[in-house]
Write a protein that binds this DNA or RNA. Structure first.
Lengths: 244, 244
DNA sequence: GTCATGGTTCGATGATGAACGAACCATAGC
DNA sequence: GCTATGGTTCGTTCATCATCGAACCATGAC
């Protein structure tokens, strides 16, 4: 019996399956556009090889490129690709047996706390925000994804977030992105991007050039805990689990 | 600069990147355990080759095997692997340009309507249920994933769902799984599995041997629409988008 | 104009790994 | 005991593809 028609996952997976290409994609998860030579450097390749890899990623639709002068800037093709990479990171973290047990310096906790996921906030802080928004009814599941409710729109506007134009779009304004370190969803999409920009503008989060990790300033930590407190709604099953 | 420590996604992706292995994994998405020869057949391989591929998948942690007599039964390693495959299907459906445009017979719509995703319900009906549960406050985001609320527990129990023991577990009872055809979340995890069994028990959904597609009986369609109506909560942004 | 630099293209080389046939092992049925 | 069948292991063959050096093109600086 032939298998019923379904998307061809093998080519995409194979594209990510090469260590060099995977390293490049991971580097692009920082959200910044990188030049071809920079990407070749992170993968430890010569120019020729890097160019070949990037051409494949481009043909596969995983990245986009923009030429500026004699430089060529590369970015991930979009949030959906970023979500896929995060999903893979989650699976890989589960499956690979021992290696992640090595202590990896003080930067790793920072990554778990707050980091860039392409163009939005991920990590414990990202999840905290997502949980608060849903718990407070600012975010609702609708037919085609997530959207802000009236109160959510007001809430974020009051916070100083420059919300994108809600006019009809092909891509939803809000999406859920699976957080690989926290194993839950955080907010993604244009709204999440705007939110991140606002938080950076207030100097609550600071981007560091070298890493995807974001540093949470003391003022930021206090503000986030005040503005996005843990949702009062807690599952009774969880409580039952604590005192059985 | 060396990349900050992060999970190694390349090996996992490479494992799925081979067409033969991808075909096997897709076949396993039906949730049933398949024998080695069956898997070899769906991929069109000889015994020797199939065996080699399965050994790799096993070492990679993507599948589990159980020996019964002279047969060896293969299943996906768990829900998290299934979620990864679904994520890949979603991305692949986006990226591959033309191919999915071919009309693919009457079974494809059925797949989009209701299908198995490893051990739970996916497709439009799965999303419908998920949306209703969240909209009605039966499902809440908590620190570590999703959980049933008090009303949710009562709701499902009243429906005849044999809910699993809520005692502390390493894996959450509810998870969100990204639906590749609907592009939104549907419910996954032990609770979703129990729910599917209940719906099958009522003969609202019927499993067909050859496919992952589930047939929704007329009685089932009526019952599902009555019990899991579309959430009354609809995003104001969506409304604004309709009459700008 | 010249020069340096970012990027692409072209072959050639080399290694990885997918595929198969054949021999082998183990279980089930007789 | 014998035989059929499901799976594994072993060598071999063959393609694919990552990698590199070198030549080449284009842009920017001078």
């Amino acid at each position: 019996m032939t298998v019923t028609h379904a998307p061809n996952i093998a080519p995409v997976a194979a594209l990510i399956g090469d260590p060099a290409r995977a390293a490049m994609l991971m580097a692009l998860m920082g959200g910044r556009a990188l030049t071809m030579s920079e990407l070749g450097a992170v993968a430890g390749l010569g120019k020729a090889t890097a160019s070949a890899h990037l051409r494949q990623l481009l043909q596969g639709g995983l990245i986009t490129t923009r030429s500026a002068g004699r430089h060529k800037y590369v970015t991930l093709a979009g949030p959906r690709v970023a979500a896929l990479i995060e999903a893979l990171m989650g699976a890989a973290a589960d499956l690979s047996p021992a290696p992640p047990r090595i202590r990896t310096g003080p930067r790793d906790p920072a990554m778990r706390m707050a980091r860039l996921c392409y163009d939005h906030l991920a990590g414990a802080r990202g999840v905290q925000i997502f949980d608060h928004l849903t718990g407070a009814g600012h975010l609702a599941h609708t037919g085609d994804g997530l959207s802000l409710t009236v109160t959510g729109t007001a809430f974020l506007t009051r916070l100083g977030v420059a919300l994108p134009d809600p006019r009809p779009r092909h891509t939803p304004l809000c999406r859920a992105c699976l957080d690989w370190s926290e194993r839950t969803s955080h907010l993604a999409g244009p709204v999440a991007r705007a939110l991140l920009l606002a938080l950076e503008g207030k100097r609550w989060l600071i981007r560091t050039p070298g890493t995807r990790a974001l540093t949470v300033t003391p003022a930021g930590a206090a503000a986030l805990d005040r503005i996005f407190p843990a949702s009062p709604l807690r599952s009774p099953l969880d409580d039952a689990a604590r005192n059985p």
